[in-house]
Design a protein around this nucleic acid. Structure first.
Lengths: 240, 240
DNA sequence: ACTGATTTTTTGATATGACCATAAAATAAA
DNA sequence: TTTATTTTATGGTCATATCAAAAAATCAGT
């Protein structure tokens, strides 16, 4: 007896509905933006009850595969790929105290280093233009003499997201977004504000952009890692 | 008008139930393994209908926070943190064709390199013992003259998971598991089997373990990266 | 008293039907 | 043509009934 049989657990009927619809979405029978039939129609198509259909739709909604609206012309619409489920699953790990700021920061450092390196390898002229545009609006913001991180952090996040796009790996993009979304609260709580620090932060971004423009992957990686490391050290000090 | 107000969308009532229960789990009011009240009791506690409670439980179940059983003493039990939601969200990205083998492999290479490096920094004697135990059972398996990858891949995966544990970052563990789970199908389909390749693979693992034991992070990283790179190149060639 | 079958009981799974809330679309009024 | 009103399709919520699963309690036979 060397074979392993799978436990024979009869599928719950809502799960059957989920599987069918998910398969249809993935294989492209239903395209992004299109509407699923109404709950009543689905109920008849699957020959089941409305409650079952609703449980299935709830699950699909939380998987980020459909979004549901009420009213005439409402219903479940197929959503394009979405990083929210990934952000959520990271968030759960954090809230369950399995993942600390230290873990997040280490993971982020690894990704930002890699992303910058890849970006430096891949970037074309158009990509460079995008990065510079973000830096310009960040510079403009600094001119207004801000007294907090909030707006700057948004541009900072956009800068890093753009780098991830240039690195051309959606897995990196999704994970980076998840980490950014979840590290935010630590920024707000533990990163002291000072104009010096703001300028320092801005300078790092410029240096990364420059290394990317000069197609110097090693430098891009090093600067990005040091950048993340620096701010992480600051936060961890204030965390104690 | 510079302020942005959040759109006032009244919470759906099932969402309220989800939020409350999730909060209770995260702040520890309900501990792992404990049972939530039955649907009927919850229905009364939240003063709502059973359907609403069931939608909420379905969502919590798919978030991996509770597992539900029927029968006497059944009901929703709190589950410990779980990498399944993360594996799922990666799987969805893949099925939606947003993530290719190339993306997976690149991400994996980055992680395995980093993990091996960290493991080499952190490993204590006990950790080394665990790694060696896995290598021994792999060696024993090779002796039996296998004719396919299946069992070896399981040990391979366990080896890498153990490294991730030694690296002591649950985010890395979760992501590595997610990537492994999803790259499996490519292994089975595109990795040709040969005894030479098997031995080659095994040797890589031994080399990584040795580098970890000698606390040589740089070497551990390099070997791990080359290891992943090699098998990735093989698969990509067969993919065309 | 132990063992194995049977019944009970708790709890989830599914089905049905009713009514409310929302929002787009159609219609009427200005 | 614009604005207010009504209509209507669709999801959101509630209540009730019955089926199915499985642990626990009971019972029967040795």
């Amino acid at each position: 007896m060397n074979v392993q049989f799978k436990k024979m657990k009869p599928l719950k009927s809502y799960q059957h509905v989920v599987d069918e619809i998910q398969a249809a979405i993935c294989e492209g029978s239903i395209k992004e933006g299109e509407k699923l039939p109404s709950e009543m129609k689905l109920k008849e198509m699957f020959d089941t009850s409305r409650g079952t259909i609703r449980e299935a739709l709830r699950v699909l909604e939380h998987k980020g595969l459909v979004s549901i609206r009420t009213g005439v012309n409402g219903g479940a619409r197929i959503q394009g790929a979405n990083t929210k489920p990934m952000t959520d699953s990271v968030a759960i790990l954090i809230r369950q105290q399995k993942v600390s700021l230290h873990h997040l920061a280490e993971f982020r450092k690894m990704m930002e280093g890699h992303i910058s390196e890849q970006a430096a390898k891949n970037a074309d002229k158009n990509d460079i233009k995008k990065l510079k545009a973000i830096l310009e609006s960040a510079a403009a913001h600094i001119e207004t003499k801000p007294s907090g991180w909030k707006e700057f952090h948004e541009m900072d996040a956009e800068f890093h997201r753009t780098l991830a796009m240039i690195a051309k790996n959606p897995l990196l993009e999704a994970n980076l977004t998840a980490v950014h979304d979840n590290i935010q609260i630590y920024f707000h709580q533990y990163l002291p504000w000072s104009e010096t620090l703001l300028n320092d932060n801005f300078k790092d971004l410029c240096d990364i952009a420059a290394a990317v423009e000069q197609k110097d992957p090693a430098a891009a990686r090093r600067i990005a890692e040091e950048h993340v490391e620096k701010f992480n050290a600051l936060m961890e000090k204030n965390l104690e």
